[in-house]
Each structure stands twice: as C-alpha cells, then as structure tokens.
Simulated scan of single mutants.
Amino acid sequence: MTEEPADKPLTILIACDTYPPHLNGAAQFGFCLAQGLHGRGHNVHVMAPRPDNGPSQSETGGPWGVHRLRSHGVPTHEYWRICLPWEIKKHISMLFDRIKPDVVHIQCHYMVGEHTLYEARKRGIRVIATNHFMPENLDPFLPFPKWFKRIVARNSWRDMGRVMSRAAVVTTPTPLAAKAMTEYASLPDVLPLSNGIDASAYEPRPGEEIVRHEHPTVLFVGRLAEEKHVDVIIDAIAKTPRELNVHAEIVGGGEVKAALIALAVKRGIRDRVVFRGLVDDEELRLAYLRADVFCMPGTAELQSLVTLEAMSASTPVLLADAMALPHLVDHGRNGYLFQPGDSTELAGRITEILSLPAAERDAMGRHSRAMVEPHSLEGTLSTFENLYRGKGSLAGIP
C-alpha cells in the first residue's frame, strides 16, 4: 500500500459562532483563518450562523465553502445571532457526511462550536478549539443586575471547560487569556497562539503618498459597544489643550453610537469628533496610516486585532491597562497604557505624544511596527497546520 504524503492538503471544517458580515475580532479571525488555509492549498469549509432569518443553506460561488445555519436574532444586540440545538444538529450531521473533514477547528464553545465538536468526536475526527471569548463580552447584552451576571459568567467558564476539554488541543490568542482559562475553566495546557496578522497589508505602498489630517487625530476602530468605552476618548479629547485642536476619528458602528454623538455635543466638541461608520478595507488601511495616535480604551480585549493593525501602520498607541492590551505596549517607546476609564490621564498622554517633535513620534510608530513581528499570520497558520496533523508539543492531549 502506498502511504499518503504527510503534507497532503487537508479538508478542514471551521465552526464559528460569529463570522462576516459580523464585525468583531472572532469573526475576522475566522475569515482570515479560512482565507489563509485556502491560500495554502487546503480544502476549507466554514460553518456559521445565518446573518438573517431563513433555513440552513450553503453559500456558493466563493473561494471556500460557507455553510449557514438557521439562526435567530437577540433583542439586546444589533447583529448577534444564536442557533438552537434542535434546529441545527441534523444539518451539522448532514454537512459532515458531505464534507468528510479530516480535522475540525471550533472558534467558540457556544451552540455551533459545541455541537460541531460533539459530531466530530462521535466520528473520531480530530478537533482543535480556539477561544476568543471572555464573559465580560456578554455584560452589555444581559439586562440583569451584576450579581446575576456574575452567575452567568461562572456558568460560561464552566461550560467552556466542559466543551473544550474534549478537544485535542485548546488555544487562545494571549498568555493572559490562557491563564484565565486554566484558572476559571479548569483547562490545563492551553496554548497561547496569536491570531496573527499580515502586517504588510497596512504599510504604505511603494510610491504612495499618505495625505495626513489637517488636525492632530486620535483614531479608534471597533464596535461601538459599552465594553469598548469610547466615551473615555471623547471625554479625553475635550480635556486636551484647545490650542492643540485635537480631533477624534471613530470607525465602526454599534449600539452606543447615538449616546456617543450626544456626549460629543454635550462636551462641546461635536465638530472635532468624526463618526465614520463602517468602512471598507482600503479606507480602514488609510485611516490607520493617517492617524497620529491609535487609542483602544476597551476592557475586554483578548488580543485586539485592530490595535495590531494600527501598529502595523507604524502608529503610536494609547491602550487601557486591561486584559491583553498591556502586551502591546513598550512603555514610552511605542506608546503608553492608561488606567481604564481615566479620561484625564488619557488626555495627558494624548497631549504628551502630540507635543513631541515629528521625528520622535515617527520613532514611536516604527517601534510599534517592530513589535508586530512576533504576530506573523504565516507563523500562526503554520502552527495550526502542525496541530491539525497532530504535530507539536501539545499534539498528544487526549
């Protein structure tokens, strides 16, 4: 019998509970993972909730298969969808029969990830599990008192451990997240593995001239949600010296946008805060390149791909001292951390960076770019390929 080559293309099923057109880090990672693996010659399929109402169906015409499961909207979120087990389990089983995956990679322990894992285990198929979730991400969408949210958080951690403990390997983007999963979900040997980024995509192109803003500008990119604390940026801009004429550019949409606009009006700086809404990839790249400073005030970031994107564009950063964000700051060299929610401290740091000579700000930006190198997307894809094939130090986890 002739043995198959060890590096033959794999059929990979990626199970996501959020996927484009959803706009969040987990959805973006699922897309980039599928795109990268497809580019390496693998047969890739993605399973994810439908972004609208209707029966389960497979989308055709794309470079890889995308299989949408029947889903339902939730009243507290503008786009999040949930799948009910009794509506998706049969369809998941039918997709396994049709796709015949060599390996399954789940992106969450919720409905789609959980039942895809169960089906794979039943068939003896290798499962890799990646966690992009922290219980704090749910807080803005649970209209309950804090004591009840704490119960929900404990149950979420327990469920994560129950589901992901059945995977061959468990990964998460940062060492801090891995430590939290070990402590709260009782998951040993969680592998910290960056989501990865193609930093070259955010650099100026050969011969390209970047037209900077007329005014010093602080950029935020992300979903306008409570846990992102974009109000701290608006308050901070209002506290900077008037003669600096600092502006803010806010890219993204979300449930708190109206409240943020009202805050800018109240603080008397509506003319200095630009809400761009959702933009395409090229406009986003230019936003990073034009910005003088990038700010992420969020307190529930597992890695913050948008911060890595800004750093790839050689932009200094100001980040809340919370969750995984401290890993992306070399104090004073590429930016600063600030106390979460402290708009006065943030205003001081904005003023400090924007008052530097241009050469010193450029040096901070170059250091940001250098710090992105360990987060290479190619390195992340190579590691996942090894894990899919049962290679690597954690490959023997039962």
Results as ranks from 00 to 15, higher is better:
C295D: 05
H375R: 10
K122L: 14
E352Q: 13
R81Q: 02
L33I: 07
W86C: 01
T18F: 12
P140K: 03
H91T: 15
R223C: 02
L37E: 11
A26L: 11
C108M: 14
R242M: 09
G196K: 09
F220K: 10
L244Y: 01
P357Y: 10
K100Q: 11
S93D: 15
I14R: 00
P75D: 09
F144P: 09
I12M: 00
T171W: 07
D198K: 03
T172I: 07
S58Q: 09
T2Y: 02
V44H: 01
K257S: 04
F294Y: 13
R389M: 01
S355L: 12
D198C: 10
W80Q: 10
L69K: 00
V211G: 10
V66M: 01
P5G: 00
A310Y: 02
Y202V: 06
R369A: 12
E3F: 08
R349V: 03
R50I: 03
Y288E: 06
G365E: 04
S368A: 12
S194A: 14
V221K: 02
Y184P: 02
F96R: 09
R150T: 11
I210V: 15
S368L: 06
L176D: 14
D52S: 12
Y19S: 08
P173C: 06
V46S: 10
D321P: 02
A201H: 10
G335P: 04
P241I: 00
R81I: 09
A168E: 11
H38Q: 12
M111A: 13
T217N: 08
S186K: 14
M181T: 06
C16N: 13
H215G: 03
E3L: 11
G252P: 01
R267H: 07
A395Q: 06
A324S: 10
A129T: 03
V265P: 07
L284G: 12
Y19V: 08
F294E: 02
A168H: 14
L187A: 00
S165R: 14
E227P: 14
P9M: 09
R154S: 09
D330G: 06
R98L: 09
R205P: 09
V329K: 04
P101S: 02
R205E: 15
P192I: 00
P340E: 05
D139T: 15
L263R: 11
L244M: 14
Y202T: 04
G379M: 00
S200W: 08
N43F: 11
I106L: 05
I125Q: 07
I128Q: 02
H375K: 04
V317G: 04
G253F: 03
Y79A: 04
L176W: 15
R68N: 04
G62P: 03
R270K: 13
A291V: 06
K149R: 10
H331G: 03
A310M: 10
E378N: 11
K257F: 07
N131A: 12
F31S: 00
P55G: 04
A26D: 04
I350P: 05
K100I: 07
R68T: 00
P241C: 05
I353H: 04
G222R: 05
Y19I: 09
S165A: 12
E378W: 01
L193V: 01
W64F: 15
Q57N: 05
M323Q: 04
E119M: 05
N137M: 15
I350H: 04
T171Q: 11
P326E: 07
H213W: 11
L219N: 01
K100A: 05
S71L: 03
E378D: 15
G332T: 01
P143C: 08
S186V: 09
D292S: 02
